[in-house]
Design a binder for these strands. Structure first.
Lengths: 136, 136
DNA sequence: TCCATTTTGGTACTTTAGTATGACTGATGT
DNA sequence: ACATCAGTCATACTAAAGTACCAAAATGGA
């Protein structure tokens, strides 16, 4: 965290410095206008890339867009999808049953149906396939 | 794919146009230098963000940086780590044994050790924890 | 060379996961 | 009113996963 603040502070300072330099360069006509603009453009282009990269540092903030159409096309129902999410969280059938206030039998039924619909042999494979489909 | 090419083409055209406009604006002194530079800076800043975002569109290209120090601190050995990767791919113990040319017993030993080291109760939970630790 | 660690593998066991099948309920649409 | 379907749950079974404990190679340094 401290490192991030430091990096951003330095970045802002560098940008301000660049601004001042570019103004001096232009008013004193030491440099060609094109070069100054190009430098500014390139620097801010990379700053944009850098900022965006930083903003994605935490995996929880990754823009994982869920493909709801895919879920529909696989004919996965609401309940089944809930179970799929719990599986992906690493819960056992017993734990899923408890969190959803259902019996373990019901969860087993849902899991079995999910495996068929996702064409998976195991729950771990189901998670892998679901992620590749961008549905979780 | 076609859409991406189109968008990038338009983007490049827009940038070139901006360049020309800025040059005209500066030489004819219609606008203040600061404003032109600021506009250039802002535009390229967002272009940088846009480009970086686009480059991350494919999930396979996500820059998931693996925390090797974390792996070490958890005392996960090379073999155990290989097994962990296979687990995350959704393979069964039997399949992992076959791909690594080992017996299923060995895989079970590795998995058991992994569960202890990752403080997980199940292989699915182990995958979840490993991802939260950024080690897979 | 010797020591520590990793890697490998086995047996015997318990637990969890998954399959197959059938049945009941409640909501929905025709 | 009736068929349909999602959701629920059960039983009985097989398969896979995981635990506990042990032990022998191999690997890599000191």
């Amino acid at each position: 965290m401290k490192k991030t603040v430091l990096v951003f502070s330095l970045l802002i300072l560098a940008i301000l410095l660049l601004f001042q330099l570019s103004k001096y360069a232009l008013v004193s006509n030491n440099l060609q206008t094109e070069i100054v603009i190009a430098v500014i453009a390139i620097v801010f282009f990379f700053v944009g890339i850098f900022i965006h990269k930083k903003s994605l540092q935490k995996p929880g903030l990754l823009p994982i867009e869920i493909d709801y159409k895919k879920i529909e096309s696989l004919e996965i129902s609401k309940r089944e999808y809930e179970v799929l999410q719990k599986i992906a969280e690493g819960l056992s059938n017993r734990e899923i049953a408890d969190t959803l206030f259902l019996s373990e039998s019901t969860i087993k039924t849902h899991v079995s149906n999910l495996l068929v619909k996702l064409n998976a042999k195991r729950r771990t494979e189901a998670v892998q396939i679901a992620k590749s489909f961008q549905i979780i």
